[in-house]
Design a protein around this nucleic acid. Structure first.
Lengths: 127, 127
DNA sequence: ACAGCCGTATCGGTCGTATAATACAGTTGA
DNA sequence: TCAACTGTATTATACGACCGATACGGCTGT
C-alpha cells in the first residue's frame, strides 16, 4: 500500500503536481514496488483534505504515463516495469539538480561554496 | 539600469513571482547596486510580452519589502542597504538548497552520490 | 445477492493569475 | 511650457486550479 505519511502540501505548485511528484519519488526511492495498491481517490482526498477531483487529475496523468493501472470499480495498482525505477530516479535527479545548479550560478555562488553550505544543510536536516 | 536580458519566462510558477525572484537574484549576484534604475512597468511589460498589471504586482511587492523605491511620476530605483545583498543571498541560497536537499533525500540518494552527480552537472553546464 | 466500496463523470461555484482597455496625476527633459 | 514619459488606479474578461455535491455503473467481500 502506497503511503502518504510524511507527505505535506506546500510550495506554490498545483496540488495535483505535488501528488504526482510524490508517487514518482517513492518509486525512485524504492519504497513502492510493482503491483502495489494506491489509496483510492476518496480515501486520499479525505486524508489530505483536498477535493477528490484533484486526486483524480493526478492519478489520471500517472495512468497516462503508465505508472499506475486503474480498472473501473476496483482499486488502482502501481505498474513498475523493470528499469522504470532507475529511469524515474534519473529523471527526477537530473531535473532537480539542474534547477539547483542553475539557481546557484545565478546567485553567483562558486561550486566549492555551494557544496560546503549544502553539506551543512544536508546534515542539519536530520531531525 | 537593471537588465532582463537573459531572463526567460518558464517553469510553472506565477510570472510575478519569477520577476521578483529575478530581481533578487541579480541583487544577490551583485549585478544590481543601490540607486539603480529598473525598467518602467510599461517597458518591461512590452519586453516580456506580459500585462503591465502583472509587472506592477511584482514591483509592488518588491517595494513593500523595501527592495525598490517608487515615486509617482518618476522612474523607480533599487534600494539596497549595506547588508541587504548578503541577506538576500543567504535567503535565496537557503531556500533553494533546502528544497534540493529535501528532494534528494526523498529520492533516497546519499549525500556522496548526490554531490558527485551534482558536480558533473555543474561542470557540464559550461556552455 | 447485495451493501459498500471502487473509478468515472458532470455541474456549478470560488479564487488567484493574467489579460485588456482606459484614465489621471506627477516627473522630467528638451 | 508642454509633450512624453512615469506610477497608480479602475473596470471588465478569461482561464486554470480547486472545491462541493451528486450521480452512475463496475468490482468485491460477506
Amino acid at each position: 500500500m502506497v503511503s502518504f505519511e510524511d507527505f505535506i502540501l506546500g510550495e506554490d505548485r498545483p496540488i495535483y503536481l505535488q501528488i504526482i511528484r510524490h508517487i514518482k519519488q517513492e518509486i525512485a526511492a524504492g519504497a513502492i514496488e510493482d503491483r502495489e495498491e494506491i489509496p483510492s481517490r476518496r480515501a486520499l482526498s479525505a486524508l489530505l483534505g483536498v477535493n477528490p477531483n484533484t486526486i483524480q487529475k493526478a492519478y489520471r496523468i500517472l495512468e497516462d504515463e503508465g505508472v499506475i493501472v486503474s480498472r473501473s470499480g476496483a482499486i488502482s495498482y502501481t505498474h513498475v516495469d523493470a528499469g522504470t525505477v532507475e529511469r524515474i530516479r534519473r529523471e527526477l535527479f537530473a531535473e532537480d539538480t539542474k534547477a539547483w545548479v542553475t539557481a546557484m550560478k545565478r546567485l553567483g555562488v562558486s561550486r566549492e561554496e555551494a557544496f560546503v553550505l549544502a553539506k551543512d544543510i544536508w546534515e542539519a536536516e536530520r531531525e
